[in-house]
């Protein structure tokens, strides 16, 4: 199976690999997936409390090229968005942008879950109610 150029590009030059200080109150961390499934994504956002703007986003991913590309692209999209805007990111947008084939759609679902999980972690840390998302079957 050949990968799309965009997947190869994100894999070869991943954007925003790294770790934010999770002890900070304005950093939200999402850790999703499981080692036995072959994908684990950790996605983190740093939020400017005053504006609600995501000023930084980092990821680390254990997974195939599509999983790495999905999380790399997600961090790019997150930066500069408000938390409310970030909630709207849909996995199908990632699928379209990266030209993921059907067997790799679960990678984009995982990235969307990681975003939502990071946002909820941020909300929880800041005394906000966690958002409830529809159960997804991966």
């Amino acid at each position: 199976m050949a990968y799309s150029e965009k997947v190869i590009d994100h894999y070869s030059n991943p954007k925003n690999v790294g770790t934010l200080d999770k002890s900070k109150k304005n950093v939200g961390t999402g850790l999703v997936g499981a080692p036995e499934c072959g994908d684990v994504m950790r996605l983190q956002i740093e939020v400017d409390d005053a504006t609600g703007m995501i000023t930084d986003a980092k990821f680390k991913t254990f997974g195939c090229g599509s999983a790495i590309a999905s999380s790399s692209l997600a961090t790019e999209w997150l930066k500069g968005k408000t938390v409310d805007e970030a909630v709207q990111i849909d996995n199908m947008d990632l699928v379209e942008e990266l030209n993921l084939p059907p067997v790799k759609i679960h990678c984009s679902v995982l990235a969307e879950d990681a975003i939502k999980s990071a946002i909820n972690d941020y909300r929880k840390k800041n005394g906000l109610e966690e958002l409830v998302f529809e159960e997804r079957i991966h």
Binding site: Y3, I8, Y11, G38, D39, F62, G63, C64, G65, A67
Partner: peptide, 11 residues
């Protein structure tokens, strides 16, 4: 360990 095989192959 801690690296996924398909991701590894892609390298």
């Amino acid at each position: 360990k801690y690296v996924e095989g398909e991701g590894l192959l892609m390298g």
